[in-house]
């Protein structure tokens, strides 16, 4: 079990290195997919089918969107250039990350032996309290409903932001009434003031 997870992790690391190093954008996108599908297999092995299903379908949709978006762009090859500052700084930060990760992981409960305090309560009382046979759904939509509401808000906000950025045409020019009301100067007025200032 753990050796299979290790193989999956190594597979993921190799996939991400290929995704970074390859020159072709399409191969890079497909190598990114390696990470997502391996993560979903890992979730399935660890006994979390809910998250595995979500991971698989999200990965498929993201791959389709990325391939669709990258193929239409003309520049599909990346020029390589050596940046000493970037390499040195990323090495330093990676070393710092390793040190703090070692300090933090030492205090975590060991793999396969979670501390069952709140989760024991959920497992024992979820079916009577909510009537849902799927304990995961009863947690995310009943016990932890605020979390799901926040997640939906994050999704909604990101969609609105993407819509605002990706629209083809901007808003129409400000009308005269609006500029008078808010007190924004029109271009002619700005030019007049500038000329008065120069004189």
């Amino acid at each position: 079990m753990e050796s299979f997870l290790l193989i999956l992790l190594i597979f993921m690391i190799v996939g991400s290195i290929i995704a970074i190093e390859t020159k072709n954008l399409l191969s890079s996108v497909i190598s990114c997919g390696v990470v997502g599908f391996s993560v979903s297999i890992a979730f399935l092995m660890l006994g979390a089918p809910d998250i595995a299903i979500t991971q698989v379908v999200v990965e498929i949709l993201i791959l389709v969107v990325l391939i669709r978006a990258t193929i239409t762009i003309d520049n599909t090859s990346i020029e390589e250039h050596w940046d000493t500052f970037a390499v040195v700084s990323s090495l330093i930060f990676f070393g710092l990350f390793l040190v703090f990760a070692f300090l933090a992981v030492k205090d975590l409960p060991p793999f396969g032996e979670p501390s069952m305090r709140v989760s024991q309560q959920y497992l024992e009382t979820a079916l009577q309290k909510t009537g849902a046979a799927n304990v995961v759904t009863s947690i995310i939509l009943d016990f932890r409903g605020y979390d799901t509401l926040g997640e939906a808000t994050v999704l909604f906000t990101s969609i609105v932001g993407a819509f605002v950025i990706l629209r083809r045409r901007g808003r129409k020019q400000r009308s005269a009434a609006d500029t008078e009301k808010v007190g924004i100067l029109t271009e002619e007025e700005i030019k007049e003031e500038y000329e008065e200032f120069r004189e």
């Binding site: 949709l61 389709v64 969107v65 669709r68 978006a69 239409t72 969609i159 993407a162 819509f163 990706l166 629209r167 083809r168 045409r169």
Partner: peptide
């Protein structure tokens, strides 16, 4: 679906 359309066709 809306985000797919926005990303692939680039338009509101």
């Amino acid at each position: 679906f809306a985000i797919f359309m926005a990303l692939s066709i680039f338009g509101r």
